[in-house]
Design a protein around this nucleic acid. Structure first.
Length: 533
DNA sequence: CTGGGGAGGGGGCCC
DNA sequence: GGGGCCCCCTCCCCA
């Protein structure tokens, strides 16, 4: 949704126009998200629409709850719990709340606020540790990670996977940032990624009620702070704070000494890191073996869901799944799509084009996959068999639905045929894995399935008073939350210390697929032996 | 409960 | 490297 009064000139070259003459067109505004952040920062500095005041040892900072909730797990959980109980405290959306954060150094808090609104962390190396501590307390993991990188600190036990993640995620620090400067194109992408992350992390809510506050008290900043601020002031002239070349160039001469550092927020992979290590294993086991040949394209990691996206140019496409941006609109019915090829397929509905005819009957299909499924009907092949009740299905997803639907409990009376060379044998390998009963799955200690596919944030079902459901979804880290004194918004359900419960430290799924296949194979082998006996 | 269509999303290939 | 095109998988919905 672009704001006409806010966005710049739309990228008319990327306008997706459908064949229709008078149809609606979707005009993307790539700069919208960055300008939105810039505008928010201007509002913060002017004290406009600020509905949250942070205090630290006498210093006061006006800010926006939605922005803080977008960048900080602490505030997200805090406000999430708060809004989950309407009628709780009258502060909800009704005025300016005050959060006292005396355990966070004022300089660090100021730096984190700047980061929240500019995507750039400007700190002195001497204050690095304070910022690290503050970022940990407030659950701003990317900042904490970057600080750890700079400080050369290693994490605690069992964090190896996290460090690997960091390497893949490519937090750009120090000289490595110059790689970004060299490529304005990549920079735009990274900018888009970060803004997308913000727009993703921030639930779609109505704007907070207007609550003008007094002039924003300038935080006590370290000497040299302004010197390294973007020229012309933050966001001056509608520029994109934190990503302008001037900002980057201002940090060219970084040294480990007591000079301010500019730490770019989470970005994509740097080119150097692109070369680090082999690309991650495919999610499904069937591909690596004998399916399509995997081209060694540069994998990129989504800064939002941490998913590895294979293929050059695929990350922007993936990011639209988080931002909800649908630039491609059907001229006939107005339905919007995130991808041009999906719109193209959709248009077949209106044109009547069904490019996949069945050679055996008059049936024609919109998708090649539908034809493939349809051909199974003619052949009579039902390659997808329930391992428990042995009911066979034409389609794999129907088998999955069968397994999920009524939790097939029928006794296994017949062993599935092995090596029958049925249609989709290779697919069966993966479907067998998916068909492992829950009891087996638990016995195998399979990692929990990725839950970031469609809804990044799980609904608050039956959790503790302060929702921690989103924590494992936001990465394997669960920052400890101290007893931060918060006035104006009362956290229902008890003290905030409960936030510190590290209830989730899920690692990446790992080689679960091959594991499961081996288990299944082993079971089959055992059964073979039993049968022979 | 099942078959089928549509849509969303990821990956490979190619330009 | 970005983007188009295609294939594939998965999920949702409907009859």
């Amino acid at each position: 949704m672009g704001l006409w009064g806010m966005g710049r000139q739309p990228q008319t070259t990327q306008v997706a126009m459908s064949p229709g003459e008078d149809g609606l067109i979707g005009i993307p505004f790539p700069e919208h998200s960055s300008e939105l952040l810039s505008c928010l920062n201007e509002q913060r500095r002017a004290g406009l629409l600020c509905d949250l005041t942070l205090t630290s040892r006498g210093a006061r900072y006006s800010t926006h709850r939605s922005v803080m909730a977008a960048v900080s797990l602490y505030f997200r959980n805090l406000f999430g719990a708060e809004e989950g109980e309407p009628g709780d405290v009258g502060s909800v959306g009704s005025g300016c709340s005050v959060c006292q954060l005396d355990c966070v150094a004022p300089d660090a808090l100021d730096a984190l606020l700047e980061f929240a609104y500019t995507a750039t962390l400007t700190i002195r190396s001497s204050g690095m540790r304070d910022v690290l501590k503050a970022a940990q307390l407030l659950g701003i993991q990317c900042v904490a990670d970057a600080c750890r990188d700079i400080l050369g600190e290693t994490k605690g036990e069992g964090d190896e996977e996290e460090e690997e993640e960091e390497q893949e995620r490519g937090i750009v620090v120090g000289e490595r940032t110059e790689d970004i400067v060299q490529s304005s194109r990549r920079k735009r992408d990274k900018q888009h990624i970060l803004k997308s992350r913000l727009s993703h992390l921030q639930p779609r809510r109505d704007s907070p009620s207007s609550s003008p506050t007094a002039e924003l008290p300038r935080a006590p900043t370290s000497p040299g702070y302004d010197e390294y601020s973007p020229p012309g002031g933050q966001n001056g002239g509608g520029q994109h704070a934190g990503w302008e070349p001037g900002v980057i160039n201002g940090s060219k001469h970084w040294t480990p000494g007591d000079t301010p550092l500019l730490v770019q927020a989470e970005t994509g992979l740097s080119e150097e890191e692109d070369k680090m290590g082999p690309p991650p294993l495919p999610e499904r086991g069937g591909v690596a073996g004998g399916g399509r040949k995997r081209k060694s394209q540069t994998p990129q990691q989504c800064p939002v869901c941490q998913k590895i996206i294979h293929g050059a140019g695929k990350l922007p496409r993936h990011m639209r799944t988080h931002t909800g941006e649908k630039p491609f609109q059907c001229s006939a019915c107005g339905v919007r799509f995130t991808r041009n090829d999906k719109l193209k397929i959709h248009m077949r509905k209106h044109t009547g084009e069904r490019p996949y005819p069945c050679p055996h009957c008059p049936a024609r299909f919109l998708h090649s996959y539908d034809l493939k499924n349809h051909l199974s009907l003619h052949s009579g092949a039902r390659p997808f068999e329930c391992p428990l009740c042995h009911k066979a299905f034409v389609r794999e997803d129907h088998l999955q639905r069968h397994r999920k639907g009524h939790s097939c409990l029928e006794v296994r009376t017949r062993r599935p045929r092995r090596g029958a060379g049925s249609v989709g044998e290779a697919v069966m390998a993966s479907s067998l894995l998916d068909s492992i009963p829950l009891s087996h799955a638990s016995a195998f200690s399979r990692s929990p399935p990725p839950t970031l596919g469609r809804s990044p944030f799980l609904p608050d079902v039956d959790g503790p008073p302060i929702p921690l459901h989103a924590m494992p979804l936001l990465g394997p880290r669960g920052p400890p939350y101290p007893a931060l004194l918060f006035r104006g918004v009362e956290v229902p359900g008890g003290p905030i210390e409960e936030l510190g419960a590290p209830n989730a430290t899920h690692g990446p799924p790992g080689p679960q697929v091959s594991w499961g296949e081996e288990e299944e194979e082993d079971n089959e082998e055992e059964e073979d032996e039993d049968e022979e006996e």
